[in-house]
Design a protein around this nucleic acid. Sequence first.
DNA 1: CCTTCAGGTTAACGACCGCTAACCTCGCTG
DNA 2: CAGCGAGGTTAGCGGTCGTTAACCTGAAGG
Lengths: 196, 196
Amino acid sequence: MATRTDAPTRREQILKEAARLFAERGFHGVGVDEIGAAVGISGPGLYRHFAGKDAMLAELLVGISGQLLTGGKRRVAESEGDPEKVLDSLIEGHIDFALDDRPLITLHDRELDRLRDSDRKLVRQLQRQYVELWVEVVREVYPGLSEPAARSAVHSVFGLLNSTPHLGRAGTLPGRGATAELLHRMAKGAFAAAGA
Amino acid sequence: MATRTDAPTRREQILKEAARLFAERGFHGVGVDEIGAAVGISGPGLYRHFAGKDAMLAELLVGISGQLLTGGKRRVAESEGDPEKVLDSLIEGHIDFALDDRPLITLHDRELDRLRDSDRKLVRQLQRQYVELWVEVVREVYPGLSEPAARSAVHSVFGLLNSTPHLGRAGTLPGRGATAELLHRMAKGAFAAAGA
DNA sequence: CCTTCAGGTTAACGACCGCTAACCTCGCTG
DNA sequence: CAGCGAGGTTAGCGGTCGTTAACCTGAAGG
């Protein structure tokens, strides 16, 4: 993964602002003029960069799902052989993502149904692979869990970790590090309780 | 609370279908004609029962928040004196709600921003009271938790419990009872880990 | 039997929104 | 320096949507 130091392209600006606006007011609640205004151009200028409003949402959601899956696979490969450490790494990665890209997390489970069939299928497939990645690791750490139970547990822990948008909108939460650590402990506690 | 045996009124039919549709496609994604069609009347006929589309959403969200708070208060009063049992009761009540009224749970944290200012303030106030109810109980059971940490933990457990809409859309989950029990164990495990 | 009214109907208006068309204006580059 | 393409602009079309207006109907009540 190339660490990018160069300035963000116009496309990236647009995607970032669109993600924020979609998360705040919903896909249908945001007009193209607003997205344009957020990056300093106006309305139809966006069509020089995207085929349409739908295309922005699609690129966002596919990007999110792909990023999560790629990061997850990398972490599994890196800590191969020690399931406990792999699970910790997966949790840590997901928390980083949830804390750093809250609008994307919000979109991720809110606007999926607004996609064209083909895009939605792709996103669903990426999501499913990501879940299965977790399920395998969780079942290695807690062999007592049946596969359906493990899958439910994983979805529930995602719900827990993705709750960050509901934690005080601004600085009311006790610092990023402490929040991350609390979420991590709770996720592990939830899995442990599920596996008992 | 009067257990109702009589047939649902037209208003209630409308609210139920509107909740389902809003949860499926988002507030802006559903037209009044669709809501009307879902109850067998057409479009503008709804305006005999509601002042407008916004009013339906408002009544739904206020109703949800009020129901949660009322039920929570009742449960706290019933098991007074035994914090552990109170917490179990709160968790059980929230799970029942999440499993039985999935569309409402979805709306509850998805469409709040679409409300008029006054309604949104009311809903937020009810939500806050509900959270504080939990926070007090959680801090009695786990005195080591600071208030901000307890609040974060409560929000996160809500995220966990409210994940039910993401668990297999149909009968892929292993039975209602087993799911409820799994969620309950995980919630307690998450709190316990937070309080350590 | 006439009135009333709750609860419908269809038609239509006005606003908004996604998108296209047509045009402009730079900064390159041969 | 001509030309051209990338990246803007504004005007406007077509469709959708929430809401209102005007009208209809059937059941209840005096």
